[in-house]
Computed example of a mutant assay.
Amino acid sequence: MKTVVKTPARPRAKSVEGESARSPRYTAPALEKGLDILDVLVDTADGYTLNELSVKLGRTVSEIFRMVVTLERRGYVQGDHNDRYTLTLKLFEMAHRQQPIRSLTAVALPLLRDLANLTRQSCHLSIYHSGRVAVIAQVDSPERWSFGMKVGAVMGLTDTSSGHVLLAFRDPAERARMLAAHTRVEGEIEIGHEQLSALLDDVRANGHEFVPSRQMRGVTNVAFPVIGNTGDAIAAVNVPYLERIDQKINPEFGDVCRMVGEMAARLSALMGFSGYNLETE
């Protein structure tokens, strides 16, 4: 099975004479300090003490102390008994309340439930978020055993099937911006630029990725892009396929792949895209 995605022509971006995003006209030093703290904490699962934060930011402890206390009071960071600070899920929750994501999730969930029931497999929907892949919706398999991703979980951008289809179905400039913002997750497998480029070209040519999981043995990922009305991937549908080896008869792998592709095409159509066709070779 091959997926053919006919993307519409893209308008050229217009530049504004005399303005540069790299040379801001106005600055807010206090706000920038707070954002710098959030940016640093994104990169750690174990958190940092105030002293470690000061070293990372190149600022004194007295400069950042009130910022950290304010961020903790507002629920953006949390401190443990060792005075190590980590991010909470508040930023993710805020992004999840954003209208486009809420709309996408609301439309996708009934289709994900149907897909789980038809395939007898778990499935999830992911988006690109701040250099990583974030799970925004998930439905468990109706079977006794299932394997799935938690809503809110973050995954690697360059070593997951969801990340690959999200990257493959973006224009080169946007793909470069996504990779420039790439933030590694714990355990993420490194991949060279040329190898990644060739892999993404294959994913785009095929319209999907079917590949053994790079994180869990015995799982085969079946990932398709959800295409928006601009022709870009706005999300990825993924089924972490588990093969039954007992006498229970479930849909075969090829049938599961077809069902996932059909679901992604339906969701893309609901998102305003009309060029998503599934061809069987």
Rank of each mutant, 00 (worst) to 15 (best):
E93G: 02
T70L: 12
Q78T: 14
L89S: 15
V69D: 12
L91A: 15
A108Y: 00
V77Y: 07
L53H: 12
L104S: 02
V69N: 10
K56Y: 04
T88W: 11
D83W: 05
V107I: 14
Y76F: 15
V61W: 10
G58W: 07
E72D: 05
R74L: 12
Q78Y: 08
G79T: 06
E72F: 00
L71Y: 07
Y85E: 02
L87H: 08
G75P: 03
V55T: 13
P110M: 00
N82M: 08
L53G: 11
Q99L: 14
P100F: 06
L111P: 04
L104C: 07
S62M: 13
E63Q: 11
E72Y: 01
V55P: 05
Q78W: 08
E63N: 05
H96T: 09
S54N: 12
V69S: 11
R73V: 04
E63I: 00
H81V: 09
V77W: 07
L111Y: 15
L91P: 03
Y76G: 01
K56F: 04
T105K: 15
R97T: 15
F65G: 02
L87R: 09
R59N: 05
K90D: 01
I101C: 03
I64E: 01
S103M: 13
Y85I: 10
E93M: 08
E72I: 01
P110R: 01
S62H: 06
T70H: 08
Q78H: 08
S62T: 10
V61C: 06
T60M: 09
S54K: 05
L111C: 09
Q98Y: 13
T88L: 13
Y76Q: 02
G58K: 03
L87I: 02
T60N: 10
V68Q: 01
R73G: 06
K90Q: 09
L71G: 01
A95S: 13
L53P: 14
D80K: 05
V61M: 12
S62N: 10
L111T: 05
H96G: 06
M67K: 12
L87D: 09
R97C: 10
L104K: 03
R66N: 10
L91F: 08
L89M: 13
G79P: 05
